[in-house]
Amino acid sequence: MALHIKILGGGCANCERLEKHAKAAVAQLGVEATFEKSGDYNEYAKYGLLATPGLVVNDRLLSGGKVPAVGQVVTLLTNVLAGE
C-alpha cells in the first residue's frame, strides 16, 4: 500500500526536521511514499492542527506541534500500514 505523507507548516526549522525524520522512517521501512508540503492555514484547520509542524499520513493527522523521533515516526507509519 502506498503512503501519502503531508508535512504541515510553512518553512520553519522544525518542519524541515519533521520532513527529514519522515523520510528517514520511510527509508527504514523500505516502503513507497509520496511527499507533500503545505503552509496553508485552511489546511491546518481542516486536519485540526493547532501548532506546526504537523504530520499527515493518508489524510489523517498523526502528530502535531512537535517533532517525533525517527523511531516514533516508524511506529506511526507501521500502525497505518497494519490498519489498512
Binding site: 520553519c12 492555514y41 491546518y44 484547520a45 485540526g48 492542527l49 493547532l50 501548532a51 506546526t52
Partner: peptide
Amino acid sequence: SLAVCSCTVLPLFAGIYRK
C-alpha cells in the same frame, strides 16, 4: 507558556478562533 514566537501564536490563534 506556549507563545515565545509568533510562528506558534498565529496557527493556534486561527485554531482557537475557527474550531
